[in-house]
């Protein structure tokens, strides 16, 4: 089996996911991880999948572009290697959720992710949204990250608070370790 990554986007409308996955099903592709969301009215897809050996990314991309030409999607397929997930530990690994909101300004994401980088924390999911009027835009940022067990979360919270003061936004966080029941 060969591993692939598909990136696609286009003006949002019903049926995009069905049409793309249906074309992949015709190629007997097996979907693995994916994330799909609406960004500013564009539906954006990142999708990993496996296909029988001998099928090239160019061939798959051409098939998709041909079968989906009416959707005017921007489609790219690349051959990739799947890696093990970067998790610091298993059961005891701490997941930190950081929420940031406030008036929009440049540097919010960079300001907070710099702190996480300095602590060696690995971001697993990140979502930002902008709302409000053009004159007073509001920004929301959610970061979900996997945290090494030896990170001092009090120190982490202090550093994040300092970043939020500098940037003039509100920040709160939760650190949750999972419990098996």
């Amino acid at each position: 089996m060969e591993n692939f990554l598909l990136r696609a986007f286009g003006a949002d409308r019903p049926g995009i996911v069905y049409r793309i996955t249906n074309e992949l099903a015709k190629l007997e592709a097996n979907l693995s991880d994916s994330t799909m969301t609406d960004l500013e009215g564009q539906f954006v897809i990142m999708l990993s999948f496996t296909c029988a050996a001998g099928v090239s990314s160019n061939f798959i991309e051409a098939k998709l572009k041909d079968g989906l030409s009416d959707l005017s999607l921007n489609i790219e397929v690349s051959s990739i290697e799947f890696h093990d997930r970067v998790l610091f530990s298993d059961d005891e690994s701490k997941r930190v959720s950081i929420r940031v909101y406030g008036a929009d300004r440049p540097g919010i994401v960079a300001g907070f992710t710099k702190v996480l980088y300095d602590f060696g924390i690995n971001i697993t999911d990140l979502k930002t949204s902008i709302t409000g009027s053009e004159s007073s835009p509001n920004y929301f940022l959610l970061i979900v990250a996997d945290t090494p067990n030896d990170v001092d979360t009090v120190l982490l919270e202090n550093e994040l608070k300092t970043a939020s003061t500098t940037l003039g936004v509100h920040m709160s966080l939760d650190v949750i370790a999972p419990d098996t029941i």
């Binding site: 994330t35 997930r85 298993d90 059961d91 959720s97 999911d125 999972p178 098996t180 029941i181």
Partner: peptide, 29 residues
Amino acid sequence: QHEIDHLNGKVFLDRVLDVADVYPRKRYL
């Protein structure tokens, strides 16, 4: 609550509401 969910035919995955709320696990115990 977890065990009563089981007796009602539910595991925790049946209660997940958002994409950021489910995490793959690398290895189990």
